Amino acid sequence: MKKQRAFLKWAGGKYTLVEAISRVLPPGEKLIEPFVGAGSVFLNTDYPKYLLNDINPDLIHLYQTLKRRPKSFIEDARTLFSVQTNSASAFYSLRTQFNGSTDAYERSLLFLYLNRHGYNGLCRYNSSGGFNVPYGQYKKPYFPEQELEFFAEKAKRATFTCEPFQNSFRRARRGHVMYCDPPYLPLSVTANFTSYATQGFSLDEQALLAKKALHASRKRHIPVLISNHDTMQARWLYKAAQITELQVHRFISQNGATRNKVNELMAYFPAGNLAP
């Protein structure tokens, strides 16, 4: 099966890891992703149904809009990828328009534009909830038409929700499979990158996620796979899981020379896990 790229650029996206993730994920009736992000795992697996959740309402509204109105959305989005819209003045004007808009369709179009024209594909908001990623200065931003079409077609199998990750666990049933790609634990105190949604993702939430995964697997027979940085903290949180180690290139750093490989892990909690 040909690998499918997401139509969004996404810090921490799982495109390069989908083979490793797919090798661990068991078959099931439905794949549930509480932190769907750009959706690379969704796009590169083949479950009968999907429940795709994220706490970012702009992301989920975009997915719902693309599922509902694929043709008109793609045609309207195309108009935002032109020479006229690829300048600093146009970008900041459209960013202001996005931040002032309450129309879900307009925000979805502009969210795609900002993602492809903004710096490094970052998704970042200020304390007031305003999108504040700067202009990316790309010569000709790519319009992901084929990727949008593929996503829209596959989205027919998916339900999209925007709620806390705990709710996704409540929706899970025996026969379902869960893949969790939360905001990662920091590699160091100064490397904490949690501003992807307006609120960060605290250590308490990391611990709650691990607890939910263990409970789902042992008590409800729902297998759960979690990705995270390979740190002492992560090893402690996932001590009851089966650990797979990975090395991954990271692209968040502004300094290209420091974009080195970092250690990640996958923590797998199999259904009915009886590990001590």
Rank of each mutant, 00 (worst) to 15 (best):
L52Q: 03
L62Q: 09
L110A: 08
L52H: 01
Y138R: 13
G256W: 06
A267D: 05
L62N: 02
K156S: 13
D103R: 07
L208T: 13
S253D: 14
Y15I: 11
A271T: 12
I55A: 15
H61G: 01
K2N: 14
N53A: 12
A234D: 01
T258I: 06
N228E: 11
R170I: 00
G13N: 06
T159M: 11
I74N: 03
L59H: 04
P48M: 07
R250W: 01
Y119C: 03
T65P: 00
L114Q: 03
P70C: 00
Q146T: 15
K3P: 10
R235M: 05
V189H: 12
A172T: 10
G129F: 06
L274S: 15
P27L: 02
P270W: 05
K49Q: 15
L25T: 12
K211L: 10
V177W: 02
N86M: 07
E33N: 06
L114A: 05
E29C: 07
Y184H: 03
F35K: 02
N167F: 07
A11V: 15
A90F: 08
C123Y: 08
F42G: 09
A104K: 14
A271V: 12
D46E: 15
G39C: 12
T159S: 13
E264K: 06
N126K: 05
Q84P: 00
L265M: 15
W10D: 08
V177F: 05
F201I: 07
A77W: 00
A275Q: 13
T65C: 13
L51S: 06
A241S: 14
P223D: 04
F269Y: 15
L203T: 11
F35H: 05
